[in-house]
Amino acid sequence: MNTNNATNKGLVLIADEMHLSLMPMLENLGYEPDYQPKIARAEIIEKLNYYVGLIIRSKTFVDAELLQNAHQLKFIGRAGAGLDLIDIEYVESKSIALFAANEGNRVAVAEHVLGMTLCLMNNILIADREVRNGVWQREKNRGYELMGKTVGIIGYGNNGSETAKRFKAFGCKILAFDKFKKDFSDEIVEESAMERIFEEADILSLHIPLTSDSNKWVNAEFLSKFSKNILLINAARGEIVPLKDLAESIENGKVRGACLDVLENEKLQKLTDEQKVVFEKLTTSERVIFTPHIAGWTFESYVKINEVLIEKISSLG
C-alpha cells in the first residue's frame, strides 16, 4: 500500500475477492483502489485509518472493533445483498455511508431458484444419475408442471420481485408477503397476508434478510400451518430455516421437497454432532436439492455487482 500517492478522493480498501473491473471503475471516480483480498481482520483494524472507503463481501464482520481506527472512512460497500454481517446502527452512528449491491444479483438468484425448482419437480437430478448408471425408469420419474401452481414469496424486494417474474412466466399464481411494503399488487403479483399464503401456496420461496425476527422463523410450527404439502425454496439465508425442523417436516410430508442454496452452517467441516446427523439425513433424501450458496454467483452478476456499487458510491460526489 502506498499512502503517499492517494488520489484526490483517497484510498479504498477492497478486502475480499472481487471482479477486477472494480479497480478501473473506482479510479474513474477519483479513488485509489487497494486490492487486498487476503487481508486479515487484524490488519484491516490496524490500517483502516488510511482509507476513505472499504469494500467487502461476506468474510468481514463490520463492527465497532473493526472500525476503531476508521477516522477517515466515508463509505462501506457490500458486494452483495445481505447486511447481516454489518452493525448497521453503529456504522450509521459514525456517519459512514453504507451501500449494498442488492440489485446486482437479482437476475442470477431468480434464474437459480427457477432452475432448482424445475430440477426437483421433474426429478432431473435423479433421472440423470440413473441413466448414467444404466437405469431407464420413466414412470418412477414422472414429474409435475409449474403451470397453475400457486407460489408464495416472502420478501418482495429485488430478488423476490425478480423471482416472481420468472414464476409468472411459467403460468403460476404469485402471492407475496412483505412486512415492510404495502400496495404493491400488479399484473404479476398479489400482495397477500401470510394467512392466505398458508392456505393456498404450493411452493414457498424465501427472499428475506437474516434479522432477529427471521432467525429460525421458518420452523416446524411455521411449516405446519400450510394447508398443502409444499415445496420450500431457500436462497436467502440458511439460519432462517432450522434444518432439524425441515428434516422433520419432510419426514412427516408437510414439506414434499426442498431446494436449499444456503444452510444454517455452511462450514461443512465444522458441523456440530447434531448438525451432522441432520445434514446427513437430508443428503440421503431424493426430495432435497443443494447448491453451495451460488444462487447469485454468475459471471454476469460478478460484474453487475461492481456496477451497482460504483453507481451508489458516485452519489457521494
Rank of each mutant, 00 (worst) to 15 (best):
M1P: 08
N2C: 07
N4R: 09
N4W: 13
N5F: 12
L20H: 13
M25Q: 14
Y31D: 08
D34S: 15
K38R: 14
A42V: 15
I45F: 02
I45H: 05
L54V: 03
V62N: 08
E65T: 15
L66D: 04
Q68M: 14
Q68W: 02
A79N: 14
G82A: 11
I86G: 10
E103V: 06
G104A: 13
N105W: 01
T117F: 04
C119L: 09
A127T: 05
R129H: 10
R142S: 15
Y144R: 10
M147C: 13
K149A: 13
T150H: 02
Y156A: 06
E162W: 08
T163P: 04
A164N: 12
K168N: 04
F170G: 03
F170H: 04
G171Q: 07
K179Y: 12
D183P: 07
E187L: 13
V189M: 02
F198I: 03
L204H: 07
D213K: 12
L223C: 00
S224T: 13
I230Y: 00
N234R: 08
P242A: 01
D245N: 05
L246G: 01
L246W: 00
E251D: 12
N252A: 14
G257T: 05
L260G: 04
D273M: 04
E274D: 14
E274I: 06
V277I: 14
T284N: 13
R287F: 15
A295V: 10
T298F: 09
T298Y: 11
S301N: 06
S301I: 02
I310Y: 12
